[in-house]
Each structure stands twice: as structure tokens, then as C-alpha cells.
Write a protein that binds this DNA or RNA. Sequence first.
DNA 1: TAACTGTATATTGCAGGTAAAAAACAAAAT
DNA 2: ATTTTGTTTTTTACCTGCAATATACAGTTA
Lengths: 293, 293
Amino acid sequence: MARQNTVFKEAYNRCLEDLGGKDSLPSEPELGEKYGISRTTVRAILSRMRDTGLITWDKRQKLVLRRPLDQDYFPDEETNSLNEIIEKSFMQRILTGDVEPGMQINEAELAREIGAGATSVREFLIRFSRFGLIEKRPNSHWILKGFTVDFALELCEVREMFELRSATAFAKLPVNHPAWADLDLIEDEHRDLIIDLDSRFKDFSPLDEKFHLLVHKASGNRFVIDFYDVIAFIFHYHFQWNKSQARSRNERALREHLDYIAALRSRDPQEIERACRRHLNSARETLIDALPR
Amino acid sequence: MARQNTVFKEAYNRCLEDLGGKDSLPSEPELGEKYGISRTTVRAILSRMRDTGLITWDKRQKLVLRRPLDQDYFPDEETNSLNEIIEKSFMQRILTGDVEPGMQINEAELAREIGAGATSVREFLIRFSRFGLIEKRPNSHWILKGFTVDFALELCEVREMFELRSATAFAKLPVNHPAWADLDLIEDEHRDLIIDLDSRFKDFSPLDEKFHLLVHKASGNRFVIDFYDVIAFIFHYHFQWNKSQARSRNERALREHLDYIAALRSRDPQEIERACRRHLNSARETLIDALPR
DNA sequence: TAACTGTATATTGCAGGTAAAAAACAAAAT
DNA sequence: ATTTTGTTTTTTACCTGCAATATACAGTTA
């Protein structure tokens, strides 16, 4: 096997989602733009849609013939890119304690177990190394440093430095800066979510990420913003793996966010520092509480 | 071609360096330990030394027959690992303005031009991306963000945050912590170097790196320490590429370091902050002055 | 003329293979 | 009993090749 066609399959599924209620499709470049894919892939999708009788396609004319059925979609697991597969598989090992801190990580073995090529696993590990959880011995194996309390503390220490600075910078943004409008929208989303948190608990993690990323972007510093990737990644898996107290934890975080947002609006540095610190402290606590000891 | 044997060649050369004045060599494991290589490579080295008449080798007995000659050494360019070659070649393009900010970087083209395989170049770019100079468009090319003033300012901003915190932590290290002894040694090296800086200008960059790394390590934070790699990398190339005013620049830095070291010894937080800030400010200035505008 | 389609070409993502280097294992020597 | 050597096995580093995808170019349509 060479490259897999997950880009095609995943975009095909998204196209099907949007197919209902339309009777024709726009031009190829427009579709490419919409789904973030090249015309080559657009044409592959259109070809398949024609072959499965979903549309007719003659040059500019692309007429919808019928609504897509469940069986028209590619199964979910076929739309995950190899990288996502490797990442999930690897994180599962780490978080379930399958691999203990200090242990060696073996590229060849990992590749065999995951069923991927050595190159892909290798590239994944190189990218992953920036999360501070693994370390390379040159010409030899990787070492798992582990998802430990130390790790969480070090992560949160840097986060605090970066986020305090970003929040301070946020307050200095000119009133007409689009970030303020984004903040309004995010605040509304918070208020909506807090009302029926029970049914929409899954929406918390992405909203949390959106809010903090907005704050970090105010730093205008690529290293600060890039580091937020690390935080988001860790918290993403933290939310996924540790569901205990999720409801109360999320509610508390949402309320702290609202307090934090109000502080940003006040533009008062001390008030901002207080609200930011309070939230980051409780985020750190929940992260550390969830770790094995 | 598969893997190259630069580990062997480079270690072989180091062995030759140490060969003079000895009449026998220690055990294989000991040699492996000393040069940071496996026994397999040690044995390859011993084999070659025997074949070229440098030693006799019978089990534990490894007797030196003659001093190594110039022609016994592998030429320098054969001891650079592929990664070093790619890195140098790539940095040359960036720093000579061969590639302008905003331009696309093409893995395949780069690989052809450097004469390396696509995988190696790809892995290099992934590792290199943490320096904040390039960015990946998934399924497509990389973008060069460029060695610009913005880049330097963002880098220095984070450096300041991290180093101030590290320096503060340094002052709190217990008196018997080995870092204080390391600091003594580094101070001595500074005083030695400042005396004949003209003839030993090449020694400045590694000493600078050693000093700042020692400070950063006091943070006890892997993200802070890892980030120092980025700084060291950038300054390394900065020193290499920009020789103008090198002499006065280095002398100033050395004196600032001595002042900074004295401040650390005083353990006075304000004094430390002053000395650290002063040095980081002048480091930032020299970095920015060197950039094209 | 500007946007679109048809087609050709280039690049990326990934697997497979191989020499270099590391690691593991067994036998021998202190 | 521990360390060293001889030998075998495994893994890493790297190149090549191929399908998926992106990009470039030429012809077509509004």
C-alpha cells in the first residue's frame, strides 16, 4: 500500500452532508475551496457521486439526483488519517499505563503493533517529541518520560507565564480589534452551554480550547501560540480519559471563564491577573488530580 | 545506499586522537562507553585499526604499534551526519537570502538539491519546525516564515520570560548544589577567555551556550530547557553568519556575563533581574542589528 | 476576458528494503 | 562472580518506488 485516500473519503463524506436540499453543485474550484482540497480530489468525489447515482455530471452541470443514504458514506474509521490512528493508539498506551515512565519506546515494534510503516511512526514520534513526553537517544530508542505530576506541573508553569502575559496583552488590544467581537461570541456560547451542560457536555472541550487560544493569540508571539497546541493536546486527552467529576469540573471552568472574560473587559491588569490565576490554578488542580500516583 | 557510516568514521577519528602516548587499549565496553558508541562499532574501529597496522588485536590484548598519521584519519566532510549536512545546507539558503520569507519550500526539490533522500529531508523539516521559522500546509508544501525582525523579537520575548525565571530559581539553589561549582568553572573560563579573546574568538559561542544553559537548567522545567535549544540554535548561526563587530560584541557579552554571575552569587533578586535584563537586552540588540531590513 | 473544465506533471504520504549500528545472548577469561 | 569477547538478532537511518493529492497548463465556455 502507498498513500491512503483518507483525504478523499473524509471530504466525500462532508460533501454528502451538504448534499441535502440542493439540486445542483457549484464549480470545481469553488468546491475545492469549500472543503479545503484540490480540484483533483474534487473531481474524484464528483466521479464517485456520479458512479453511485447521486448526481449527473456534465461539464458545468452537476445535478443532484437523490438524497444520500447511510450506505453512501464511508465508514468513520476509514476517514481517520494514518497520523490520527498512530496518535490515538500511542496515547492509549501511555494513558492506560501500558507503557510505564522510563521505558523504552521502540519504533519498529510500535509500527508492527499499530500496523503502520516504520517511517510514519518515526515521523509521528519526531512531531510528538515537542510535547515533552518522550525523548530520543540518538541512533537508538526513545524514552518515555511519562504523563507524570512533574510533567503536569512544568506544563502548567509555562502555561501560566504565557497566559498571564497574553491576557495582559489582550486588555491592550484596541476596541475595534476583531478579538473583542470573538470574545463576545465566545461569551454567548458559554452562557448557552452552561444552561444545558448535561446534554452538551461534549461541547465543553472545544469551547475551552477556542477561548484560551483566543487569549493566547493576543500575545502576538508564535512561540506562545504554538505552545498552546501542547496544552490543548494534553487537556484534550485529559478530558477524554478522565470523566470523573466531569460535570462539576466543566461547570466550574465555565463560570471561571465568564469571570475571566469580565476581567478582560474591565481592562484592569490586577483584576485580569486575579481571574486568570484563579482559573489556571483550578485547571492545574483538576489535571493533577486525574493523574495516577 | 542505505544508512551511512558517519558514526563509525567520526568515532574512529576520535580514537586516533587519543592513540598517541598509549601502548595498549582498554576493553571493548570501556571504549564504547568513552566514545558513546556500541560495542559493534568499537569492534569495527578496532578491526580497521588492525588492518591499517595501527594496532595488534588479540582478544583482550590491543597493543599500539605506531602513531596515527594524517592519512589515517577520515576526511572531515565524511564525518558529518546527513542531518548536519541538511541543516547546514538549509540554513545557508535561509541566511543568504536564497529563499525569501513567504516562499514555498518543496521537500522533493530540496532533497534533489541537497542530494539526500526525501524521507531525511522531511524528517529534518519536521524537527526544524519547532524553531518557528517554517510552517507546514498539510498535504502540501512548507512555508518559510523567515528570519525576520518579528521572529527575533518573539524569540527574545520568550527568552526573557524564561531566563528571568530561571535566574531567580538559580539564586534559590542550595549552596551545595553542583550548579554553583559549575558556575565557578564557567566564571574562570570567562576570565581566561577575556584575556586573549583575539586569538580565541571561536571559543565564545560554546561558552555563551554553556553559561545560559546552566542558568536555564535551574528552572527545572523541561519546556524552558528545551526552548533554550531554539535560542542556542539561532544564536549559533547568528554568530557564524555575522562576524561584524564580533570582537567588541563578544567582549561586551563576556563582561555582562561576569556581572550577571556576580549578581547570581549575591542572591539578591533585584540585582539578578537588573543584570539579566541588561545582558538579554544587549543580546537582543546585536541579534536584531544583524538582520536584513 | 475571466472563470471553468480537461489533461498532464510534480509533490507528498507512506510502505518496503537494506546497510549501519545497537542490543541481546552465549561462551570464555580473569 | 564478574567482566570480557565472539556471535547472532534486532533496530535504526536512509533510499527507492508508488498511489493519492496537489499544482500547472491548455483548451473551452459563459
